[in-house]
Simulated assay, not measured.
Amino acid sequence: MELTVLWFILLTVLFTGFFLLEGFDYGVGILLPFLGKNDTERRVIINTVGPVWDGNEVWMITAGGAMFAAFPHVYATLFSGFYLALFLILMALIGRGVAFEFRSKDDNPGWRRTWDWLIFFGSAVPALLWGVAVANLIKGVPIDAKMQYVGTFFDLLSPYTLIGGLAFFLVFTYHGAVYLTLKTEEEMAERARKAAQGTGVLAAIACLILVAMTYGNTDLFASAGAGVSLWGAVVVFVASFGAVYVKRCGLGFILSCATILLTTAAFFWGLFPRLMVSSLNPAWSLTITNSSSSPYTLTIMTIAALALVPVVLVYQGWVYWIFRKRVSVKDLQY
């Protein structure tokens, strides 16, 4: 296998891991002000992701670093063209991180409500904008022959990309709700299950609209594998919703994870061998060939990845195992 193909696959894996893990973080943050009826319940909700949220964000940092090293032209074009959107994501994530740390520094209800809403916006904004970004990658953005983005921020906004953002937002919210059914107890878990049912219906509708619009706005279905994966994601999501409805939330969460995995795989599969599609001229699209680093750089990166990625995976698996139990009000007393 060529190293450029290998790093395209690794980049797909990194973004899949990020959306899968950070997706339920976003969902929990979005639901925080609505599911928590009082300060104690909101503390319980925050504690379900407290030990893992910062580790989940490392997947995004690693994906960005891998893109910079393996496909520097894509990194340069993406970060210049999507600058404002990525800046908004960064500011939202910084605000959310600060909110997690500062919320408990004062017992004043107004203080805590302010940080709770900052956690909400710090989760909602990235969830929406990542969907817009992914939809733009496959739809195409104005890139010229010099691999430069020549559009504006508003060129990234279209009915298709906004539906993509809404679909990501709702799926992540559903994903977070199902996660909370497994990490909280009794009344809180049941409340989260009902939230999953409500958001699940909306997410299913948004996903169906997104898939339908993908036919007319992209060439994703030119790849049979990508098309099967995308429709498979819809089917698996419906199965997840059904599992949650009959109170088999563990299975529902597994299928929710599979939905995100299949969706990410479908979009990257539809992109291959491209990484960014040019809406001005298909020949100007950034591919794994015209935007990659030198073979020597890719070789060194491959050796480092093979040595370090398994260590990271084992460590993160250990963290999830240690904090696998449900969080209850009793835990706040210690």
Score class of each variant (00 low, 15 high):
254 I>Q: 08
180 L>W: 00
304 A>E: 13
182 L>F: 06
314 V>G: 10
324 R>G: 07
47 N>F: 03
48 T>D: 01
109 P>R: 11
189 A>I: 06
204 A>H: 11
63 A>K: 01
196 A>K: 00
201 V>I: 15
93 L>Y: 02
72 P>K: 00
65 G>W: 05
327 V>R: 03
267 F>H: 03
165 G>R: 01
182 L>H: 03
306 L>Q: 08
163 I>N: 13
306 L>H: 08
209 I>E: 03
222 A>F: 07
190 E>M: 10
26 Y>D: 03
325 K>W: 06
309 V>E: 09
84 L>E: 14
253 F>L: 12
184 T>L: 00
227 G>F: 14
308 L>P: 08
230 L>G: 05
289 T>M: 08
70 A>N: 03
104 S>E: 15
334 Y>K: 08
187 E>G: 02
151 G>Y: 09
104 S>R: 11
258 A>C: 12
166 L>N: 00
94 I>P: 11
148 Q>C: 05
83 Y>W: 10
52 V>T: 15
176 G>W: 05
37 K>F: 07
117 W>K: 01
160 Y>P: 11
219 D>H: 10
222 A>Y: 09
312 V>C: 12
190 E>Q: 14
324 R>A: 10
298 L>K: 07
150 V>S: 02
139 K>I: 04
227 G>A: 11
237 F>T: 09
44 V>G: 04
294 S>L: 10
247 K>N: 14
68 F>N: 04
235 V>E: 14
249 C>A: 14
60 M>G: 14
95 G>F: 04
176 G>L: 05
2 E>F: 14
311 V>Y: 06
231 W>H: 15
309 V>C: 13
33 P>L: 09
18 F>K: 09
305 A>R: 04
139 K>H: 13
258 A>G: 12
237 F>C: 10
263 T>V: 15
233 A>I: 06
229 S>C: 15
236 V>E: 14
315 Y>S: 13
